[in-house]
Amino acid sequence: MPLSTMNAGPAVSAAGPAPTPTRSSATARRRSQRSGGALLIWAFALPALVVYTTFVLVPVALAAVYSFFNWNGLGALDRFIGVDNYARALQDPIFLGAMGNNFAIVGLSLAVQGPLAIGIALLLNRNLRGRALIRTLIFVPYVLSEVVAGLAFRLMLPPGGPVDSALTSLGWSGEKPLWLADPSVAFWTLFAVITWKYLGFAIILMLAGLQGVPEELSEAASIDGATWWQTQRYITLPLLGPTIRIWAFLSVIGSLQLFDMVWILTGGGPLNATETMATYMVEYGNGRSQVGYGSAVAVILFVVSLVIALVYQRFVLRRDLRGAITRG
């Protein structure tokens, strides 16, 4: 959703001003041209609108309706229970724990992946031997499907598995942590795998952003005697701002909706240590046949994501998106 909103932004702004000149004129021909333009806009927008309505708006609305019922997914929707499902979710320590995990991943992603990605991107932006190869390698994890990557880690991480053997051969002779089976360790294992998976994407994004920083500025700075560090700190980073803000936005939304990797790697376990709102939703809505309750969780997840997305766009992305979605 956030991606489509942003993509739609510039398109709307480009289409927006176009009809204005015709507004001043009143000739029939112009009017017909104008209505022809509107027709064209509708013709282009209609398929997307139909798809968006059918597969996004209607399901969201249906989930909202289901969430007020005690419904097992079969039979008639006839046991209205008001907001009981919501009350239950917000009182369930497991759901609150799942929500906590989501926010922990949001925070950790921003605090760890961001600086790491910027640092690596700055390094890769210099003239290095084999730079293209390194860039490709860094991007590989992101290209792998979540399921393939998740299964690979599941095969590597059991007690005495390849990872443990590798650590032993590197000189760690003692007991290894139970990477996926120890509830106090599994969350960090998960976060490490997510970081491995998504860091490449962040780096590529940052590198693309760096391409937009004019070299003249760095040249001018170095003529004025700025060191490499000063150039990065006072010129490159500020100009990379829009990219960083967009990356952070994608990262936050992705972290809130995190599902696939967790589902494959731990299934939310052990003892719910890696549960996220999305895995909780699937476990209860689907696994335990409580579709009404699962829908309530889905609505909570949707509202949390939507509020954060809107607030972020309103206050953080405001300048970056000016004219696109902040103004009509």
Partner: peptide, 13 residues
């Protein structure tokens, strides 16, 4: 070891 994360039927582990 690690039975909390062991699956029942998938693979040698």
């Amino acid at each position: 070891d690690g039975f909390l994360a062991t699956s029942a039927q998938q693979g040698a582990g």
